[in-house]
Design a protein around this nucleic acid. Structure first.
Length: 274
DNA sequence: CATCATGTTATAAT
DNA sequence: CATTATAACATGAT
C-alpha cells in the first residue's frame, strides 16, 4: 500500500505514542527487515526513552527517541504501522513492537520488503537528511524537473516517475495517476514532452501528491471514483474521464494502467517529409 | 497450481 | 560510465 500518502497515514498511527516512554521492545531480530542495523542496539537504545518526534519524507519515516536515537522505517510493499493494546502479543509478522504503558506500537510486514534502521547520533542520520526535495517542496521546481527529464530524455516517463532519487514518495499508482491526469502515455520519452505539457506534468505531480495526502493521508480512505485509482486494478475498468476501456500492461517491469483514448503515445519525431 | 502484487536493489547486459 | 533488463527477496490474494 505504501506511497507518500499511505506512509504519512501509517506514521500517524503511532502518534498515540508521542511523548510516551518505551517500556519494552519485542522484535524478530533475525528477519530481513533489520538488514544493515543492529537489533540489539535498537532494543537497548529505545528502551526507557520517549518517542519525541515523528516525520515522513516520501516513503521514508523517521521516529526520534530521546535526543539521540533515530528509528527509520520503510514499509516496502506490505508494511504497516498500527497500535494495539499494551497486552498485545506479537503475531508472526509483527517484527517490531514497542510497548508504552497504554499501547503497543507495531511494525507489521508479511512480505519483509520493508526496512528498519537504527542510528544513535546527535543529528538525524544521513540517509534521512540527504533525501531529495519532495514534490510539495518549493525546491521541486519546474526548471529542476525539466533539466532532470532533459538529462534522461530517452527514458519513458513511467519509470522516471518511479525514481525515488527525484520523485521521493511517488510509486506505481501515483505515477499512473499523474500521467493519466497529464494525458501522457507512460512510454512517452521524457525529452518528447513539449514545455507546455511539461508544466501540466509538474502541476500534476504536485496536485496528486497534495490530494492524496488530503484523502488517504488524513483518513486512510481510498480516493474517489473520479480518480484513476479505484479503476486501475479492475478487470474491465473504464477511464473515469471518457469511459474508454483502460489498458493494463507492464512498462519497464511494473504494471502500468492508462487510457488508450486520453493518453496517446508520442508521435514519431519526423512524421513525414524527406 | 499459476499468476500477480502500491518496492528496492544487486547483477548482468547493452 | 550511463542506461536498461532481469532476478531476487517472501508471503498472501485471486
Amino acid at each position: 500500500m505504501p506511497e507518500l500518502a499511505e506512509v504519512f497515514y501509517f506514521s500517524r498511527q503511532w502518534r498515540p505514542g508521542l511523548g510516551r516512554t518505551i517500556l519494552r521492545v519485542c522484535l524478530h531480530g533475525e528477519k530481513r527487515v533489520f538488514r544493515g542495523s543492529s537489533p540489539r542496539a535498537l532494543r537497548e537504545g529505545l528502551s526507557g526513552r520517549r518517542l519525541t518526534s515523528i516525520r515522513t519524507h516520501g516513503k521514508q519515516m523517521l521516529f526520534r527517541f530521546g535526543r539521540d536515537c533515530w528509528l527509520g522505517v520503510h514499509l516496502g510493499m506490505t508494511g504497516t504501522l498500527l497500535t494495539e493494546s499494551s497486552r498485545h502479543q506479537p503475531l508472526d509478522h509483527d517484527h517490531l513492537v514497542l510497548y508504552t504503558r497504554e499501547r503497543a506500537l507495531i511494525f507489521r510486514d508479511p512480505r519483509l520488503f520493508g526496512r528498519i534502521r537504527f542510528t544513535r547520533s546527535s543529528r538525524p542520520p544521513s540517509w534521512w537528511s540527504e533525501l531529495p526535495p519532495g514534490p510539495l517542496s518549493p525546491a521541486f521546481s519546474f526548471i529542476r524537473l525539466k533539466s532532470f527529464l532533459q538529462r534522461r530524455g530517452g527514458t519513458p516517463l513511467k519509470p522516471l516517475l518511479l525514481l525515488q532519487e527525484f520523485f521521493p514518495g511517488i510509486g506505481n499508482w501515483m505515477a499512473d495517476e499523474i500521467l493519466w491526469r497529464a494525458r501522457l502515455h507512460p512510454l512517452t520519452p521524457a525529452a518528447a514532452v513539449p514545455d507546455r505539457i511539461l508544466r501540466t506534468l509538474h502541476n500534476m505531480v504536485r496536485k496528486v501528491s497534495l490530494a492524496a495526502l488530503r484523502t488517504i493521508g488524513r483518513n486512510g480512505q481510498d480516493p474517489p471514483a473520479t480518480w484513476l485509482f479505484p479503476h486501475r486494478w479492475q478487470d474491465g475498468g473504464k477511464c473515469p474521464r471518457c469511459r474508454e476501456a483502460l489498458i493494463r500492461r507492464p512498462v519497464a517491469g511494473r504494471t502500468a494502467c492508462w487510457c488508450a483514448r486520453c493518453q496517446k503515445p508520442a508521435l514519431p519525431r519526423r512524421p513525414r517529409r524527406s
